[in-house]
Computed example of a mutant assay.
Amino acid sequence: MTKAELRRWAKRVRAGLPTAELSHQVAGHLARFLAERSAKHILLYSAFGSELDPAPLQTLYPAHYYLPRARTHGLEVHPLPCPLVRHRYGFLEPAPHAPRVETGVLEAVLVPGLAFDPQGWRLGYGQGFYDRFLAALPPTVLTLGLTAEALLLPALPHDPWDVPVRYLATEQGVRPALREDG
């Protein structure tokens, strides 16, 4: 299947999942994983449509949380709490005048996606915001793709500019992505 066909398939599958329940299960696993690694500066995302929502993590794990704001040049990072505005696609994002921080403060980045594969490749929405953002992070930052097991596919097509996540978080737990080179 092409990426466009996979996106349509993933949206249909995800629409039929118990997203709220899965989000809470994944948040519980994330809280344990992040605590074991003492990660205290975590970039969340605002759930869009039927995406898994990382927001429940904030009540389970004490840390400093941040949200991204998409700009034409990439993602900006804003500390929470901050003023939020509704994006044209319907999700909340930091207001343009909200304080910003440099990405160097981040220890973990939670990454949304329509689907993932065991190697950590992600099927996004095709705009490249997260790939550009992930490519600029130091290798010490934990990158975690949040997905339901039903959307974990054996393999996804990927382009040279795509950046895989290092860990996958599902309702079954958090596990390292299987690197193709080892």
Results as ranks from 00 to 15, higher is better:
residue 3 K to G: 02
residue 99 P to L: 03
residue 80 L to Y: 10
residue 181 D to I: 04
residue 18 P to S: 14
residue 109 V to C: 12
residue 69 R to S: 05
residue 79 P to T: 11
residue 26 V to Q: 10
residue 143 T to F: 07
residue 42 I to G: 04
residue 95 A to T: 03
residue 25 Q to R: 15
residue 123 L to Q: 15
residue 173 G to W: 04
residue 98 A to E: 11
residue 115 A to P: 07
residue 86 R to G: 00
residue 47 A to G: 01
residue 104 G to I: 08
residue 82 C to D: 01
residue 53 D to R: 05
residue 177 A to I: 07
residue 133 F to H: 10
residue 116 F to K: 03
residue 107 E to D: 07
residue 65 Y to I: 07
residue 6 L to Q: 15
residue 14 R to V: 06
residue 16 G to P: 00
residue 154 P to M: 00
residue 113 G to V: 03
residue 128 G to Y: 05
residue 116 F to L: 13
residue 118 P to G: 09
residue 40 K to E: 15
residue 164 P to K: 14
residue 40 K to I: 02
residue 139 P to C: 08
residue 122 R to L: 12
residue 28 G to K: 01
residue 133 F to K: 05
residue 101 V to Y: 03
residue 21 E to Q: 14
residue 81 P to E: 03
residue 9 W to F: 13
residue 64 H to I: 02
residue 136 A to F: 06
residue 146 L to F: 03
residue 136 A to R: 15
residue 75 L to Y: 09
residue 72 T to S: 14
residue 108 A to T: 14
residue 2 T to I: 06
residue 162 D to T: 06
residue 131 D to N: 09
residue 7 R to F: 05
residue 86 R to P: 04
residue 37 R to G: 01
residue 122 R to H: 07
residue 132 R to P: 05
residue 82 C to P: 09
residue 94 P to M: 14
residue 47 A to S: 02
residue 143 T to C: 08
residue 101 V to H: 06
residue 14 R to A: 06
residue 16 G to W: 09
residue 24 H to F: 09
residue 35 A to G: 10
residue 108 A to I: 08
residue 164 P to R: 15
residue 15 A to H: 07
residue 146 L to I: 01
residue 144 L to V: 12
residue 97 H to Q: 13
residue 134 L to R: 12
residue 20 A to K: 11
residue 114 L to V: 00
residue 124 G to S: 05
residue 143 T to R: 01
residue 146 L to Q: 03
residue 152 L to C: 12
residue 49 G to F: 01
residue 94 P to F: 13
residue 124 G to T: 04
residue 2 T to M: 08
residue 106 L to W: 13
residue 126 G to I: 02
residue 18 P to N: 15
residue 173 G to R: 03
residue 64 H to V: 04
residue 150 A to W: 00
residue 64 H to M: 10
residue 23 S to T: 10
residue 138 P to N: 14
